[in-house]
Design a protein around this nucleic acid. Structure first.
Lengths: 245, 245
DNA sequence: CGTGTTGTTGAGTATTATCAATAGGGGTGG
DNA sequence: CCACCCCTATTGATAATACTCAACAACACG
């Protein structure tokens, strides 16, 4: 599959447009960003913790993850990034982040120099759009924290399936009850804060609720019952025009 | 205690200056923001979840908290806001947040209209500074999520004490091993994702490590041993000039 | 001097982690 | 094409951690 920077950038424009109205000139300015495309394999480190960067990275295809590592090697994935997400837009205002970022599956990435992004945010409307993107990121993180802190294994995993379903559907990758999530059970366990063994058992329980996860493919028989089980309310995704139901 | 908006705003300027260099003109522009001071009691709701606002809120004194609530009434606090923090700067780009915000103790608040803040971010350097503030918020949230997902009760609570100590010291409220954290044990339990009973037992264990929490006052006998226990590395607070040691 | 909130402790239970063993699947090299 | 190996998934048994229920003490407040 050949991916041009142009095609990749249009994904980003779409993503930003989900939450911020861009004028035709602004869209053009974004499309004119310089970028370099790269194909990487699973477990490829995009940024190591503590490393300083001079470019941001957008996911074109595949799945990215932001994670933290404990001294004993246990890992917590705190965010998933799907196609269209600029996974370290953060690094524009804060080039030395404390976070690691890796490709969780085979992935196509687009690297964009900070310098170009900094020029872009001289436009206040784009600055606001990027800022809003970071706010969205934070809102998702907060929800993730709340789930890790106060939900048990089953609703926690159910919530992850709901969230990823909504996000995939938004960007046109499948539907909310049928989409591809290219993860191993171990990686998923790192995301929901469980051991791989317990995650496997939790998946088994969810199977009885009509949710299957098989070789990276999620299928949800009844969205409404899963959403109820997960106490999923998409408001935190900050999508406009979809008031909290 | 009488607090003028001027005095309150200077707190905010200091806080922003921790991570972003501001020119004298920019400082002045921030100091010229209009603001209204309010004194509130504990458990006072600053914003209800899903509510739309047209102003942001800065903590002048006391403690604020951002939280999420489960259907059964269990609560997770996902962020603490201390004096100088603009706790919903987020609401400038996203006026309808899905989050509740409340005063966790008696507190003094400063309300600033969004309109004024939006005018301020026409200055690209201030826009970057505010954006950076949101990135910091996200970084702290991510760490919070990692702790909730992968640490047990004792190191989790220890990490909270370390984080709050660092943050308090930064803004000149006590030292990292001796500071005021005006919380009940219940509220603290909601922050670390434990029940109040188990939090109480965890505090007891930490007492044997030389950490006391008494009527809202934290005292840490040996910072280095607590930091080791908590695996605390302040890099994620994005403070400049203090490389990850 | 009641009364309600907060903090403390005990006993029993539920959830999740750990350890261990096995099965399946995809790729590689002979 | 087959044998082999590594990674992933699955299941069982047991242990550790955290939760629930319950009672009571300490304290602030009116």
């Amino acid at each position: 599959m050949v991916v041009t920077p142009q095609k990749a950038l249009s994904l980003f424009v779409e993503r930003v447009s989900l939450r911020s109205a861009l004028s035709p000139e602004e869209r053009e300015a974004v499309m004119a960003l310089p970028g370099r495309v790269a194909h990487v394999g699973p477990c490829h480190d995009i940024i190591l913790p503590g490393q300083r960067t001079d470019h941001s990275c957008m996911i074109v295809s595949g799945l990215g993850g932001r994670f933290d590592m404990m001294a004993d090697g246990r890992r917590q994935i705190v965010a998933f990034y799907i196609p269209g997400d600029m996974c370290d837009l953060n690094s524009v205002p804060a080039p030395t982040s404390g976070w690691g970022l890796e490709a969780l599956s085979r992935a196509t990435l687009l690297f964009i120099p900070h310098a170009a992004l900094r020029r872009l945010v001289l436009d206040p409307s784009l600055a606001m759009a990027f800022w809003r993107d970071t706010v969205t990121d934070g809102s998702v993180l907060a929800k993730w924290a709340a789930n890790l802190g106060r939900k048990q294994a089953i609703p926690r995993l159910a919530h992850l399936f709901c969230e990823m379903g909504m996000r995939m559907e938004q960007v046109g990758l499948g539907t909310r009850n049928d989409y591809t999530l290219p993860l191993t059970q171990s990686q998923m366990a790192d995301a929901v804060g469980l051991t791989a063994v317990h995650l496997n058992r939790t998946l088994k329980s969810l199977r009885e609720e009509g949710v299957t996860f098989n070789r990276g493919h999620v299928r949800i028989a009844s969205w409404s019952s899963l959403a109820a089980l997960a106490e999923f309310d998409p408001a935190y995704l900050l999508l406009p025009g979809r008031p909290a139901r």
